[in-house]
């Protein structure tokens, strides 16, 4: 049997996507089970999409965003941060581990940070085990 590997979806904002690219050119290794989806800004990621990703089989969802302090007057990442925090509370309430949704602050030059953090997240998700929402929702009482 093939060993189970977690599937992780990372929504990366424009700026942190360059960080992810940088991890690539500088030769940092990170696990291949992280699929990145590039979005214009982390605040465009509607929490519904995160929930949908979990439903469709992701074991964890990661959002990467600019640090709020790096932005000027208004900080969209703060909205993202608030949404993630709310979503984690909701997941915890319905009985899904809150660690399955995370936010990472990655700037455009932090390829190394991205690679390290992602490897850590993959390990932690492996420890949590598969989410298996489909199985849990179909289970007969």
């Amino acid at each position: 049997m093939v060993a189970w590997k977690p599937k992780i979806i990372a929504f990366t904002c424009w700026c942190s996507s360059s960080g992810v690219d940088q991890a690539g050119f500088e030769g940092f290794k990170y696990p291949a089970n992280v699929l990145t989806v590039r979005v214009p800004c982390s605040a465009i990621v509607n929490p519904s999409i995160v929930v949908k990703a979990l439903e469709e089989g992701a074991d964890a969802v990661l959002l990467t965003a600019c640090k709020p302090v790096e932005l000027r007057k208004i900080a969209p990442s703060r909205i993202t941060e608030a949404r993630v925090s709310l979503l984690r509370r909701l997941l915890k309430t319905v009985g899904v581990e809150e660690e399955r949704v995370r936010i990472l602050w990655i700037s455009s030059n932090e390829g190394g940070v991205f690679a390290n953090e992602v490897s850590r997240i993959v390990e932690e998700t492996e420890r949590l085990g598969p989410l298996n929402l489909r199985g849990r929702m179909l289970e007969q009482p």
Binding site: P47, S48, V51, K52, L54, E55, L86, L87, L90, L91, V94, L133, R134, M137, L138
Partner: peptide, 24 residues
Amino acid sequence: ALVHRLVDPVELFTFHLIRAIHMA
């Protein structure tokens, strides 16, 4: 559609979480 009317039971999870987020 994020949630279809009759298709898949696992979408009930999405349905309820989305509605909860909209009500928060």
